[in-house]
């Protein structure tokens, strides 16, 4: 009995239960809708239909299969999201450093950073596009804007969470500011920095897809809206939905993997 309980409460089982639950709910919904609508795949196709479309070699836009369309456009979107994410992370980290080193910077910059965060991305994207006049640059800029804030605030929180005694140890051996950052503050804040990265990695991808929808010319978001407008198979739409979700989750795990590589010590729970 206890063993059964233990197995049921393990992390993998919980995940499995969730996935199965979702599939059941999805399929019930799809079955119900299939009986009421003429073109149910626009609303909620069966999962099997989506899976079929992934492996189907039917050309949906004259030259490519649905899967080919998704993958070729994904590269376009993800590379821009990745570049923006890296730029945003660097800016966020430097900003955290500056805010921690100079109190006036924190006092002046922090409220405005928060305000930038509060502008809805849907409102900001066309403005950025109008300024950069280039969809590629806009993707990068938007991804960077969404990335830098979680990274900056989390890293700053990491700097501030360092115990006083650890600072006093540095003070007692007359450590220079450079050494305090190098040997204490930056290593101590790494877990916080990575928390920021884990929050912003899926956000950067979402943002990049969103920016795609603004202009024709490729990218996952662009295909998403085209497939909705009947320009090609609706299964491109469903594939993109699943693909984006999976990539978003993977980006989170990628950050965890990098964190383990960079700071291999096990974090102590206190």
């Amino acid at each position: 009995m206890n063993r059964v309980k233990k197995v049921l409460s393990s992390k993998q089982i919980v995940t499995l239960v969730w996935v199965i639950g979702l599939i059941i709910v999805w399929e019930i919904g799809a079955t119900v809708i299939a009986q009421t609508k003429r073109t149910p795949e626009y609303v909620l196709p069966h999962i099997s239909q989506i899976v079929d479309s992934v492996f189907s070699d039917k050309l949906v836009n004259g030259s490519q299969t649905a899967t080919q369309i998704v993958l070729s456009n994904a590269a376009l979107t993800l590379v821009r999201a990745g570049i923006g994410f890296i730029i945003g992370s660097i800016i966020g980290f430097i900003l955290a450093l500056l805010m921690n080193m100079f109190l006036p910077v924190e006092k002046i910059a922090f409220p405005y950073l928060m305000m930038i965060q509060m502008i809805p991305i849907l409102g900001m994207a066309p403005i950025i596009l109008a300024i950069t006049k280039d969809i590629d640059k806009s993707r990068i800029v938007i991804a960077a804007i969404l990335t830098f804030y979680p990274v900056a605030t989390n890293t700053l929180a990491g700097f501030k969470a360092v115990e006083k005694a650890k600072h006093e140890l540095m003070y007692s051996i007359a450590a220079k500011k450079k050494d305090i950052y190098k040997k204490l503050l930056i290593p101590a804040s790494l877990p916080y920095f990575f928390t920021g990265l884990k929050i912003s990695a899926p956000m950067a991808i979402t943002a990049s897809i969103l920016v795609d929808t603004l202009q024709g010319g490729g990218g996952l978001g662009c295909m998403l809206s085209q497939s909705l407008k009947h320009a090609m198979s609706i299964y491109v739409f469903w594939q993109i939905v699943f693909f984006s979700a999976i990539i978003g989750i993977l980006s989170f795990y990628l950050m965890s993997v990098i964190e383990k590589l960079v700071s291999p010590y096990k974090k102590v729970r206190r």
Partner: peptide, 10 residues
């Protein structure tokens, strides 16, 4: 120090 103040990542 009273508690040893070690850097846990080292």
């Amino acid at each position: 120090f009273q508690n040893p103040v070690l850097y846990e990542w080292r």
